[in-house]
Every structure is written in C-alpha cells, then in structure tokens.
C-alpha cells in the first residue's frame, strides 16, 4: 500500500510511452499493413503499365489528369519521374482514403471495441489521448507517402534508366538534387494530408462506430473532391482542403514557385486548428457510453 498512500507521481515522458504504444499498435494491425501494401502497389502497376505501353514502340501519352502535371511521358527517360507520377496519382484518392480509414477509426474504433473506456479510466486523459491519436495519424501520413515514394523509386530504378532530371521549367539538375526534391515533395504531400486527418479525427469523436466514421470521412473526401471540380463553385474552392494539393509540382520548377505551396500549407494548418479544436471540444465533454 506504500505506493497507494503516497502521492502518485506522473512520469514526464509517459506521453511518449503512450504514443509509442499507439504507433506500435497501429502498424501491427493487418488493416494498416494492407493499406500500405495497396499504396506500395500503385507505383508498381503504373511502372509496369508504362513499360508495356512504351515497349510497343509508342510513347506514353497524356498527363496525370486535369490540372495535374504531365510527368507520365517523362518516366521512360528517367525512372525518378515515377515518384512524382505516383504521388500525383495517389494524392487525390488513395492516400487520403487510407488516412480517412486510420483517422476515422482512431477514437470511434476504440469506442466500438469498448477499449476506450479502459484507456480513459487508466487514466490516459482525454486531451492526451486525442493528441496521441492525431500524432499517430500524422505518422501514418508520412509513412504512407514514403511507402509510395520508395516503391516508385525502386520500380523506376528497375524498369527505367536514371539520370539527370529535367525540371518543369526546362533546366536540368543532377540526379542527387532530383532525389532531394523528390524527398521534399514527399514531405509536402504528407503535410497536405494534415487537413483530411483532422477532419477524420473530428468525425471519429462524433460516433461510436468505427466503420461509420471511416465511411463518413472517405465519403466526405469524395464529395469535396467533386465540389473542387465544379466550375460554378469556384468561390468556395480555395477553402476546400484538396484544392492546392497538386501544387507540390511547383517544387520541380527553377526557381520554385512558393505561392501555391504556401497557400496549401496555410490551408492545411487552418483545417488542423478548426477541426482539431472541434474534436477536442467534442471529445473532452462527451459521455462515454460505449
């Protein structure tokens, strides 16, 4: 009883222990691994498709969709472009969808399993648990993006030649600098997902059904993506979280165009603040009945 009688001291680094437990648990789930496998598979499929098409002697056509940068035709010259192409292809849907699954499930999934009540009486603390969940989701954003980039880099290196990189503005930089820019792009892509992660976390605090939270987040993502393409709605489009996503291509210019990049990051920060606060307000006052 000696410990119980005395003042129980909180350990200053305890939050890190909880974060480590959370991250470890997230990445041990089959669902997380399956999501990462899907993300890793996209660049391989794209790479093989390009290889087959150009194997016939024709040239790979088109660009990466409307508004997207035309990286596809460059892949046959330089495998590094598979990284840019893959990120441009996964950013509109695959990446945010997987973030939606992780973020949507974060609180609601624990509620569904009933483990939320045991974490809270442990007591993990509601604010701290929310922060840990958000940090874990952000970790997944980074890992997911890096998985896409690395898979693309490996596939590109195997299927295509590597070499100096011709930037969108026409100038040429060394392969080394190209790699650095690829890394920077991966980081920007990961940061672009902050907004959707915050929205997912908020939705997750609203319900006790993990599936419902995931489906709502992903549904919302699709809706917003559609709204972003309707020209009549251009008044609200600058406030939609995916609006500046493809601005990462501006990192491939010389000099770099910062304008859209900054708008993107500012918008993501705004979403993080607004929906993070909403999630906090909701979660710290909610009755845990599950």
């Amino acid at each position: 009883m000696s410990q119980a009688d005395g003042v129980l001291r909180r350990r200053p680094l305890w939050s890190l222990g909880l974060l480590r437990s959370e991250i470890g648990m997230t990445f041990r789930r089959w669902r997380t691994l399956a999501l990462l496998a899907v993300l890793a598979g996209v660049p391989v499929l794209v790479g093989i498709a390009v290889k087959i098409e150009t194997g016939d002697g024709g040239s790979a056509g088109g660009g990466g969709g409307e508004g997207g940068p035309a990286f596809l035709s460059q892949i046959t010259n330089n495998g590094l472009f598979l990284v840019f192409t893959s990120l441009a292809m996964t950013l509109p849907f695959f990446l945010p969808m997987s973030i939606g699954v992780i973020a949507g499930d974060s609180i609601a999934g624990e509620a569904t399993a009933g483990t939320l009540r045991y974490l809270l009486v442990a007591p993990a603390g509601r604010t701290r648990l929310l922060l840990v969940k958000y940090a874990t989701t952000m970790t997944f954003c980074l890992v997911g993006t890096l998985v896409v980039a690395l898979s693309a880099l490996l596939t590109g290196a195997v299927l295509f030649p590597l070499g100096d990189v011709t930037l969108l503005s026409g100038t040429s930089v060394s392969f080394g600098e190209g790699l650095l820019r690829a890394l920077a792009i991966a980081c920007v892509v990961a940061l672009s997902l902050i907004g959707v992660a915050a929205v997912g976390l908020f939705i997750s605090t609203l319900t006790t059904s993990g599936i419902a939270a995931m489906a709502t987040t992903v549904g919302l993502l699709i809706t917003v993506q559609i709204l972003d393409t309707i020209p009549q709605l251009d008044a609200i489009q600058p406030y939609l979280f995916p609006h500046y996503w493809l601005s990462f291509a501006d990192l491939l210019r010389d000099p770099v165009y910062w304008d859209q990049l900054q708008k993107n990051l500012g918008l993501q920060a705004l979403y993080a603040v607004v929906f993070g606060s909403a999630a906090w307000a909701r979660f710290t006052t909610r009755d845990i009945t599950a």
């Binding site: 129980l8 001291r9 909180r10 350990r11 305890w14 222990g17 909880l18 480590r20 437990s21 648990m25 041990r28 789930r29 089959w30 045991y118 974490l119 442990a122 007591p123 993990a124 603390g125 648990l129």
Partner: peptide, 17 residues
Amino acid sequence: FLSGRDNLWRFDAADPT
C-alpha cells in the same frame, strides 16, 4: 489482434503513474 499480455501492456502504457 493483440495477445493477452500485449493487451495488458497497452492498458498499462495508458496509466501515467
């Protein structure tokens, strides 16, 4: 998806003391 022992580790990690 966790073993019994890992479940206890998890709950213990949530206890600040």
